[in-house]
């Protein structure tokens, strides 16, 4: 879907965006937080649903925590920040300075209390706002945001609910969080309609041409 050059530009851009979010997050929780996006993919939703393409590893069976917000006007779609449930709990515990008592391979999903969801809501709000807002700036268009909703969902039932119908393409940003020496992997997924994807690609191509001149 993306040629290697487009992929490079997009990876560089989103790393700048999440870097900005990371510094805001660090200030907020008083810990050094690093965010990076080592890999970016753009996948047509239909292919993802038909299972033609391998889903991100994060979608191995089990519970996941997903927070999503919708954004609108010229650049439209839905953005999701998704974590495997254990990782989400690790991230929350690190941010509020609680002990990390999780064992690898724990069969029982960790207990999420609504205050934990509040922390995730705030973190995803900050990150998704930064990414989507910067995309808006890049495309020189106004973006209207909602506040994210956080859900704990079973991955087997999640497929339909995650990729909502107004998105035609899914932009997948594989994201690494490093909080207090703890590594947490998550995925940012942005469901975009055709217009938004083409204006984004057009802009990226423009940036590439500009560099060539």
């Amino acid at each position: 879907m993306l040629n290697p050059l487009q992929k490079d530009v997009l990876t560089e851009l989103v790393n700048v965006y999440v870097g900005h979010a990371a510094s805001l997050l660090s200030e907020m929780v008083g810990l050094r937080i690093l965010l990076s996006v080592p890999r970016v993919e753009l996948i047509p939703e239909a292919e993802m649903e038909q299972g033609n393409l391998p889903l991100p590893e994060i979608f191995s069976p089990g519970h996941i925590v997903s927070s999503y917000l919708s954004f609108g006007q010229d650049f439209r779609g839905k953005a999701f920040l998704v974590f495997p449930v254990q990782k989400a709990k690790l991230l929350v515990n690190a941010c509020i300075g609680e002990e990390l008592l999780l064992e690898e391979g724990d069969a029982v999903p960790p207990r999420f209390l609504d205050t934990d969801f509040d922390v995730l809501k705030e973190i995803s709000n900050l990150i998704l706002n930064a990414v989507i807002g910067e995309f808006g700036n890049l495309l020189e268009t106004r973006v209207v945001f909602t506040v994210p909703e956080v859900e704990l969902i079973d991955v087997t039932e999640s497929d339909q609910r995650l990729f909502l119908k107004d998105g035609v393409y899914i932009l997948i940003l594989h994201t690494n969080f490093t909080v207090a020496e703890i590594e947490v992997q998550g995925v940012i997924m942005i469901a975009l309609n055709l217009n938004s994807v083409s204006s984004l690609l057009k802009k990226i191509d423009f940036l590439l041409e500009e560099q060539d001149v």
Binding site: M28, V29, C95, I96, T115, D116, D118, V119, K121, E122, N125, L126, N129, G133, G136, R142, V143, V144, F145, T146, V147, P148
Partner: peptide, 17 residues
């Protein structure tokens, strides 16, 4: 600032603040 200049909604949690 985000709300005024970028039309962003923000949620700040009691757990963190």
């Amino acid at each position: 600032q985000g709300a005024l200049f970028h039309r962003q909604s923000r949620f700040l949690s009691g757990a963190l603040h």
